[in-house]
Amino acid sequence: MAEAAIRASGLDIHYGDGAKRFHAVHGADLEVAPGARYGIVGGSGSGKSTLLRVLAGLSRSWTGDVRVAGMALAARVRAPRAFHRRVQMVFQDPYASLNPRHTVDRMLADGLALHAFADIDARIFRVLDEVGLGGGFRFRYPHELSGGQRQRVAIARAIALEPQILLLDEPTSALDASIQAEVLNLLLDIAQRRILTLVLVSHDLAVVGHVCDAVAVMQQGRIVERLSVDDLIAHRVYHPYTQRLLAASDGAT
């Protein structure tokens, strides 16, 4: 049995200091197999994005054991560069996650150069094709792109480094339904074409159910239930919070 792509045990995450210290995630245990498509669902403030940031090596104030992509993360220490090559993240708001003063080319090239890739030009063309934009977008600035195109650039930037794990934080919740469909199709295409583990954080059960095979449900900083998407769709859920989430979303689907 290969090593899990992600294994976190006893993960506690805090914000702030002293009296204002806030315990955002309590003792989370999580295991994601290589090649799995795993969802984390919950309401605002449930800690799901905070947890994802730790898995991405972007957060330092936590305790516990975390192994991601074969590397042990250490709290309070910056993750090594090699880690970020293996683990990439796409954020919710494509208007905020791209530098407005950089062209698409520069955004992609910087990452590739930092991680010492050769044939950067060819890679940029290939990855822009892969996300359905094409080389014509290479010298555009973010303000010249629609929300959906920006999210494609963010995905291109992430997969250009050929990561093993792609972490997605509400990647479609800022997009219109028809654009969401295009981006979900793209993500599923990429997951099938590449050897990639996906972790998708969302409050939208329909989106998570579409992309993932298993989910963890978070409420107020705790993982309250883990279940397969088959069980989620069949409403075989046990925790009252998961039932509330389902009831609220059923109205919505």
């Binding site: 339904a177 969401q180 329909a206 159910g209 579409h210 689907t253």
Partner: peptide, 9 residues
């Protein structure tokens, strides 16, 4: 274009 159980994956 909305995702749903019938179109899963």
């Amino acid at each position: 274009c909305l995702p749903g159980p019938a179109k899963r994956g």
